[in-house]
């Protein structure tokens, strides 16, 4: 009788996880990858840079995954989960890379805690230590909102990852090589929906424009260089987003033109004392997001999951 079922536990904790899109046995996300910091690069700056790119992906993924079971149709539910999973995978590698570059960024946990460094970074850091852009963290709105946010995000991230493929840092180059394919699809998905909503019904156009108006001021942060980005770009490890501006603008203008939408005449959202998300100066939304994201992990700092 149990013959039908006994075999499903065979190799339960073994290595075959090919059935999972993202694997279940990735105990060490950087296994076999050279994590030496490239010559002439400040490890603390490299770690900060990896946190910027990693936190962008992590927080975007968290917001996207909130859509699960809430999308307009099953097909879009599945599509949004795919995007969230791609970004979560990127985040995991980038946070692990940050920890490997500079273990000093990893929050201290009780002695003997089995929590791996990338999880310590995701679940035990304070909001002011997160370096994501504020575009990623603001609360979800309607479907128009997720389309606009993903378009603005992926237009910039794709341009960045394309250049990052030639980084002197092996991990960043590898993350970029994989990420380019993923983010190209995200941009495509968002661009197509942007066009659809812009040219769909009056209602969809109204909602899309409202979302664009609300999110556009947050976009500049993605294409404005932070000193860490500038420094690593000159060392051949990172990418200066200011150099991407022209290309990114052109792509965005193309989508806007095809959709018959004007670029909003809204100035960039100011920082606090010139500090923005990249420096840990966030909106109120991040603290709330982290309270939810971190609650179980923080309740069990020595827990095994």
């Amino acid at each position: 009788m149990s013959d039908d079922h006994g075999s499903i536990f065979d190799g339960l904790l073994g290595g075959d996880s090919s059935q999972w899109a993202f694997g279940t046995d990735f105990e060490d996300p950087l296994a076999g990858v050279d994590t030496t910091t490239p010559d002439g690069v400040d490890p603390a700056e490299l770690a900060a840079y990896c946190l910027m790119l990693g936190d962008d992906a992590l927080i975007m993924s968290q917001r996207l995954s909130e859509w699960c079971s809430r999308a307009p149709d099953l097909e879009e539910d599945i599509a949004l989960a795919n995007v969230a999973l791609d970004l979560l995978g990127q985040a995991r590698l980038l946070l692990a890379r940050a920890a490997a570059a500079d273990p000093g960024v990893v929050p201290a946990l009780p002695a003997g805690s089995p929590v791996p460094p990338e999880d310590a970074l995701a679940f035990f850091r304070e909001d002011r230590d997160f370096r994501n852009v504020r575009l990623a963290e603001v609360a979800n709105g309607d479907f128009g909102h997720v389309v606009v946010r993903l378009l603005l995000f992926s237009v910039a991230r794709l341009a960045l990852l394309e250049r990052l493929r030639t980084s002197r840092d092996h991990v960043l180059a590898a993350v970029a090589a994989k990420g380019v394919k993923e983010v190209a699809y995200h941009r495509d998905w968002a661009g197509r929906w942007f066009l659809t909503l812009a040219r769909g019904t009056e209602e969809s156009r109204r909602r899309l424009l409202a979302a664009l108006d609300a999110l556009f001021p947050l976009w500049a942060e993605l294409v404005t260089a932070h000193p860490v980005e500038r420094s690593l770009a000159s060392a051949g490890v990172g990418v200066d987003p200011a150099f991407l501006r022209e290309e990114v603008d052109a792509v965005l203008d193309q989508v806007l033109a095809a959709s018959g939408v004007e670029r909003p005449a809204r100035p960039p959202l100011a920082g606090a004392g010139e500090r923005t998300g990249r420096d840990g100066a966030h909106t109120e939304a991040l603290s709330l997001l982290l309270a939810e994201m971190q609650v179980v992990a923080r309740a069990h700092p020595s827990g095994r999951w």
């Binding site: 097909e75 599945i78 599509a79 795919n82 495509d188 659809t196």
Partner: peptide, 16 residues
């Protein structure tokens, strides 16, 4: 699957 048009059907097919 369901999709509004051919182009979207291809995207959905890839995702699903």
């Amino acid at each position: 699957l369901h999709a509004p048009d051919d182009a979207m059907a291809l995207r959905h097919a890839r995702d699903v």
